[in-house]
Nucleic acid binder design. Structure first.
Lengths: 216, 216, 216, 216
DNA sequence: TATGAATGAGACTTCATTCAT
DNA sequence: TATGAATGAAGTCTCATTCAT
């Protein structure tokens, strides 16, 4: 858990503390490249610079590695949003604008950019993982968004559209980004214009949900 | 086996006269349920009511089955959109409204509802498949949409936003549907409200891109 | 089940019918030689003249092979005893004498001679197998013997000793045979004298349980 | 590792002054519970309260532990019998009665009750262990018994039956006890009646080998 | 064309053993 | 002496693919 555990007396144990993280990073790279089924433990071990048996000192199974990996990354990012929402000032439209920028920046970069594809691709094999992701990421994010929308509507800023739908529609183009970037962009001549995409999304979306012309 | 060396995607469109449509249907069902890696030829054979060996009379490999299957479905629906666009009358907003309804209806039902998950999940193993899908589905649909947007802008109906982005933003919530329905809906207490989602999308999106309040 | 199934039309399927038996025999040889844990499926496959994968067409697991193997042999011999008991004439001592001869002859020869060692050795790993053997072999044999003893006692031929103990004491020296032969005899200079052992057993045992000097 | 090339069985009797008696006790418990193959050094180390590496400071290998363990226990009880025989008074039948009581008491209790199963079960993997056991336990016990029988026959107390067989027949029901108790009793509703078994054995056996009605 | 028995490469996982600390 | 992290060989089991019938 701690990135710098106490290693006062036990110098040689630092390796043990670091191993899971190293393995997880190696696993992440391999899973991202191959998917769960095609990822071989040999690859993970080689990439982590250990032998295959070592993996089993830290994880019970290939599945356990995968789940742990997903779990850790999912956890990390959820604080950010909440903090931002608490601290917001100004219009709700501006808040959404801020949120979209933040989320887009994260979701367009490794490692997060690979997660939607992994989650979606392995959702049949690991239904509980999809459930976990739904609960810990999607659902929470949606709740935050719905709350913002509701308050924006109460404040007379947003038009009366079911907040749940509004939340989904706010997210959809953001979810589109990692899917497009990982699945299709490699086959396209021109790079995906993230900034333009997000900007256009906000332009259209905010104008779409506001009574008044939203501020730029 | 095949006398043609290159396994180009064009090949998939042959064999229209072959009987093993049943095989492809069985394969589709199994691939959808298990994903490519976990699908077993035994299952496909059993579901098709033939022996495992028979499959190899019609397909070179498991991969070939998968590609062929994807290819066929992709082909099927691409005519519809073009026809609709050609025949449209009235405002471009109304056309988009029509298109969204059409696409949503298709993409929310089997078999199409399963395709995005399959394509996305297997895009690493079959990059050429993603490329093919991009080319034959995404790209063409986008082109049609961009054309509509351009003409709407020329007609002074739509605001000047880069048509490519507009197209992506029109599609994103529609792509969201099959992903949500196949990956997350099974874990949610309440069903996904397709009609409400599409309606809200059009409401927001059209208001967002039009100069004037769009017609309901 | 049938040693000669119908192979009127399906000549090439005879192999399939014969396989389980062949595999079981190969497995028996290997299990006897190595014990369960040290037996390798490679060895069994090689001895049966098939590839390793073929085994799994007929058995679910290594355990399944072992259990099936034990089960078949156990079944085979149990008819004999019952038949003999039904048809007996003369004194009960003579019947026991007959039974001992029959059982000794069987238990001293392969394959049966190896079973007690296998059952005993693997009883921790396969408790249910010991239970099965207890129920299907030990218990039934004991019941038959107890019935004989009871009737011999009612007829005034045998002394009143708890029949259950008498049955165990009748069996003990017979169980001693395969254990001694498989575990210790290989390390002894002289061969185990089966005939002398059984003869001495009957001599002592029958004299021990009868009121009168038993007939020779 | 060891400076002595031959791993003769004599070696086992050394190290009497070593502390790792605890290790052997832990090993005994684990071997008894799991058998040799399924016993893990982790378990032994854990039960002994040391680390796995520590085991290798005292033993060369898993096999060495097993052999050492067997050797020690086998040693322990062999004195008893000899002492008893030397000191006997009265009839030989009474001596046998005494011996049977003594042996039964020991062989029916842990740890000895587990040994026959272990020896028998692992006799293929460790043939030299069976040989050792044969030599140090079986053979010596048999020799003592044969001597008693011979003297009983010379004294006109016992009938002229080959002493070797008599010895085996005296032992068989005693060997039956630990086998039955460890292999089958766990699956039976009623407990094994040790006293009754031994009593019936002596009743039948002594009557069977004596000219005269043996004393009760 | 159709079968289905057979193959064999390859994957995950276990665990006795080693060695730096 | 003691540790315990690391190793790597070996074993079971799976399944796409082949081929005799």
């Amino acid at each position: 858990m701690s990135t710098e555990g106490d290693h006062s007396l036990v110098r040689w144990r630092r390796r043990k503390d670091a191993r899971p993280q190293e393995l997880l990073e190696a696993a992440f790279a391999v899973f991202v490249e191959k998917g769960f089924a095609d990822a071989r433990l040999d690859d993970i071990a080689a990439k982590a610079g250990v032998s295959k048996g070592t993996i089993y000192l830290y994880f019970d199974s290939k599945e356990a590695i995968f789940k742990d990996m997903i779990g850790r990354v999912a956890d990390a990012k959820l604080e950010l949003v909440s903090q931002l929402v608490e601290a917001h000032q100004g219009s709700f439209a501006a808040l959404l604008r801020q949120l979209a920028g933040l989320m887009a920046a994260h979701i367009a970069q490794p490692p997060l950019v690979h997660f939607p594809r992994l989650i979606i691709g392995e959702s049949r094999r690991f239904p509980e993982l999809a459930a976990f992701y739904l609960e810990s990421a999607i659902s929470r994010a949606r709740k935050v968004l719905m709350r913002i929308v509701e308050r924006g509507q109460e404040a007379g800023e947003f038009r009366p559209i079911p907040p749940r739908h509004v939340a989904h529609l706010f997210i959809s183009p953001l979810l589109f980004v990692p899917i497009y970037k990982t699945v299709f962009e490699p086959h396209e001549p021109e790079a995906f214009d993230l900034a333009g995409h997000v900007s256009a999304h906000l332009d259209i979306f905010l104008r779409g949900i506001c009574f008044q012309e939203p501020p730029q």
